[in-house]
């Protein structure tokens, strides 16, 4: 982990407050999305619906703001994500559908529904509420990224819960050995349903913040963050097979990926080369990390 932190400090050639706050602004929603992946991966699952769900939250918020006001709009957006998460959780926890399929299917369902909804909402226009835009995308004193006000407590909560709170330990227990967890009295399906609802809510939050950063809302807004969110969790040392990992590593992973993206943009690489390098670097970092953890 130290190695990765050092790598990150050495890598960027230009380090000034504006650039740094820009990086953090984009890293925050990615880190929250990666939290969904971290939590679900701890139980041996994965949540591929986060991008669609996050876009849904941002889009519902933006289109409902003109009619309902910002508070209700945000609440509606988050309620929709909780519902999507609930369906995911029931599918995975109760009906034992493979999480990959369940969440992939859910992302299709959400995307389709939102496209239909979009056609009906064309007339209403979409507004990102000022308060949300300030909190999600604004900066104070020229360098402080406001979204950290949301993210720091949230990250602390997640890290703390995973270590010290019963529910956090249950995620590890279920991921490490589901049968053992069940035999020791854990109601696995309840854990999974709660987990996927939380994952949906987190995705919604990430979507709203990302909407505020870009000041736009569309049904495919967050789509390009799906793969990086999985990658961030893996680079951060969370095992995709469950039971191992944590959130602090994921945050570092999200930072690395965001720095990387911005670096590739700054260097003005052509798009194809950028894609190739991005994929190659994710692979190399993941491989290096696997080696390090295997040997220790």
């Amino acid at each position: 982990m130290l190695l990765i932190a050092v790598l990150w400090i050495v890598e960027p050639g230009l380090r000034n407050p504006i650039w740094a706050s820009g990086v953090i602004r984009f890293a925050v929603p990615l880190a929250i999305l990666a939290a969904c992946q971290t939590l679900t991966m701890l139980t041996g699952g994965i949540d591929l619906s986060v991008a669609a769900v996050a876009s849904m939250a941002a889009y519902i918020m933006a289109t409902q703001t003109p009619a309902q006001g910002p508070v209700v709009a945000v609440a509606l957006g988050l309620a929709a994500t909780a519902l999507a998460g609930l369906v995911n959780g029931i599918g995975v926890g109760v009906f034992r559908v493979h999480p990959l399929i369940m969440t992939l299917g859910m992302s299709l369902i959400v995307l389709g529904l939102m496209t239909v909804y979009q056609l009906q909402m064309v007339t209403s226009g979409s507004i990102i509420p000022e308060s949300v835009a300030w909190l999600g995308g604004g900066t104070s004193f020229g360098f402080f990224t406001n979204s950290l006000l949301v993210f720091v407590p949230l990250a602390a909560l997640i890290v703390f819960s995973l270590r010290r709170v019963g529910f956090g330990r249950l995620l590890y227990a279920v991921g490490d050995n589901e049968i053992a967890a069940r035999l020791s009295g854990v109601r696995v399906w309840q854990v999974l349903v709660t987990l996927y609802v939380i994952s949906g809510l987190l995705a919604g939050l990430a979507g709203i913040i990302y909407g505020a950063v870009t000041r736009t809302a569309s049904v495919t807004l967050v789509e390009r963050f799906l793969l990086p969110s999985v990658a961030a969790a893996v680079i951060g040392g969370t095992s995709i097979f469950g039971g191992r990992g944590g959130y602090s590593g994921t945050i570092v992973g999200a930072l690395i990926l965001t720095v990387l993206t911005s670096l590739l943009t700054v260097l003005q690489m052509p798009e194809p080369v950028r894609q190739i390098l991005f994929g190659a670097i994710i692979l190399v970092v993941a491989a290096a990390y696997t080696r390090i953890t295997d040997e220790s």
């Binding site: 994965i46 793969l227 999985v230 990658a231 893996v234 995709i240 097979f241 798009e271 194809p272 080369v273 950028r274 894609q275 190739i276 390098l277 991005f278 994929g279 190659a280 994710i282 692979l283 993941a286 491989a287 696997t290 080696r291 295997d294």
Partner: peptide, 22 residues
């Protein structure tokens, strides 16, 4: 790499797509 299949092929999907654009 001993990295899970899903991650490796996910990363490589970027590489091959980039190559296609080249």
């Amino acid at each position: 790499s001993r990295v899970p299949d899903i991650i490796v092929t996910l990363a490589l999907s970027f590489v091959w797509a980039g190559a296609a654009l080249l």
